[in-house]
Design a protein around this nucleic acid. Structure first.
Lengths: 325, 325
DNA sequence: TTGTAAGCGTTATCAA
DNA sequence: TTGATAACGCTTACAA
């Protein structure tokens, strides 16, 4: 591998001169500069990031961590991050699982964005420091070097449920997601609050515990169908479960939305194709904002205020107006 | 940041001893080892990858490069790569766009897997070397340090088309993808070969040029509908275009498959939901095999034979048997 | 304007 | 069994 020394030798100058040239320092003669540059190209030389990083620390590189491969909206988030990073001349390293913890400790990167829910918060608290800001998605952390970017699940779910109430529905069913997640709690709380506000009773036996996966929605619907009378509408804490439920209904000859209406949350790819009423989250923008928030903090423009992203209800055909019969 | 020196000082030993301990060398006294380990934990010390890499070169890290965020099967490929890498104690760094070129030249990683079609082949030819093997997906490269893993598009398309012929179809339309890609050429060639073999005429005016995106399928279908008589079946070089075409047909009251049958290629998430007949590619497995091929080569078990992955036809309801009317 | 040399965090060699 | 020291490729004072 050709290194800075080889270039220096070939150009008949010292390594520092080569370094100064490739880093655009202006204390180099025009002639020397041209010669060195020519030789770099000729020898196909590229500075070694590792050597460079080790010395200087700062290297315009950020880290993104995720590990759930089932949710295709992750690609959109990555797209947003990638675009912002590129536009600002930062490199982006993405990693999955535990490698991330390692990279946070090295000065390979100058900061990171965390989406992986399996990443423990206390690890993040320990890794974050003045010279290593962190942005977390979908979780709230109170730390001077960590910025949170979260979706306003509560307001979006409130709008969805109130809209459904306004469309004449009174008898609700609910399939919850992974119970410990902040997402799920917020979504369920909004659901309950709106019903209460409208003096609508929600008996606990119409709550079904799922895990955000399609299968759990399918199973919950199967159980639901055992009961004497179906709810008028089934709210699911995410789209995957809603889709699972719809499949179960169809298999049993129950029509959506004629026999039961269904709503989800997330607006995944399938949601549009299936005509599922849901809540749409601007994922590309979320990634973009995360990268922006991180890079601003890296560059010293400190701002760790939590950013709440607005999500919007998408009315589609799995929920129709009961009053317009 | 706590470094090896800090640990050495705290433990009252030299840095080499600490290094030997954390690398599991056996030339260290049991007592010393225990003390050092305890202090590492206590001080929350993790070796710096950058320093380590700079010195040793080899660092059990591989690189994956992609840059198209529209295709959700990328996540499945990543999942496969990630699982194999993890199981073999390798770190995985994913990067998009041009950062990759940089990382290939450094010894940050020991090899890479390339999916990004925008990555130029000559760059890869230059980067590949004994100590830096490369695996390319979806392209064939003849280089002693590059292994190709490709999908057997030809056989799969042949099966699909022959199956459609067997189901009684004779009048075909075709929407092609990006014309320069190997994928597309192979798929189209198989299509033509099967028709010829069955003595079925395919007039060139029933070929439409697309670009693999949904919109181009939509537009092609719009144009198709201008003609006097529709083909009996429309073959699309991928699912996205097939979906676009189906949307166009539906908007114009043309029923699929009653008025025209449609087939795609890829088996994307939406394909199942829409009942699209297509070809399914085992993406998780593809990623897994790529990681395996790469790591084997890194470890000196040289094998650069091209690997052809078998894809399978998935018959669904957008193509029905014409004979069973 | 250019060169010398120290140092970034680690591992490897060799001597103690 | 342990420690001193050079080396990895680069940047950066500082000296020339």
């Amino acid at each position: 591998m050709v290194g800075i020394k080889d270039v220096a030798k070939a150009a008949g100058v010292s390594v520092s001169t080569v370094s100064n040239v490739i880093n655009g320092k202006k204390n180099v003669g025009a002639e020397t500069k041209a010669r060195v540059l020519a030789i770099c190209k000729e020898m196909n030389y590229y500075p070694n990031t590792v050597g460079r990083t080790l010395k200087s620390g700062n290297n315009r590189t950020i880290l993104f961590n995720f590990s759930d491969f089932d949710r295709s909206f992750y690609l959109k988030i990555i797209n947003g991050i990638s675009d912002y990073a590129n536009a600002n001349d930062y490199d982006l390293i993405i990693c999955t699982k535990k490698s991330c913890e390692k990279y946070m400790r090295n000065n390979l990167t100058s900061g990171c964005i965390i989406l992986d829910e399996k990443m423990k918060s206390d690890v993040l608290e320990r890794a974050a420091r003045e010279s290593y800001p962190i942005v977390v998605l979908d979780r709230m952390l109170d730390n001077p070097h960590i910025k949170s970017i979260v979706v306003n699940n509560y307001d979006a779910m409130r709008q969805l449920i109130q809209g459904i109430v306004d469309r004449g529905y009174r008898k609700f069913g609910f399939i919850g997601g992974q119970e410990h997640t902040a997402d799920n709690k917020e979504r369920y709380k909004a659901f309950l609050d709106v019903l209460e506000h409208n003096h609508i009773n929600f008996p606990r036996e119409r709550y079904f515990a799922g895990d955000y996966r399609e299968k759990s929605g399918y199973k919950a619907a199967k159980i639901l169908m055992l009961s004497e009378n179906l709810p008028e509408v089934l709210i699911c804490a995410n789209d995957n479960m809603a889709i699972g439920a719809i499949k179960a209904f169809r298999e049993n000859g129950i029509k959506v939305p004629e026999d039961i209406a269904v709503a989800g949350f997330d607006d995944c790819d399938l949601a549009e194709a299936m005509g599922l009423t849901t809540v749409t989250i601007p994922n590309y923008e979320r990634g973009y904002l995360a990268a922006q928030g991180l890079i601003e903090n890296i560059q010293g423009n400190r701002n760790i205020d939590t950013f709440k992203i607005t999500a919007k209800v998408k009315w589609r055909k799995t929920v129709r107006d009961r009053l317009e019969r």
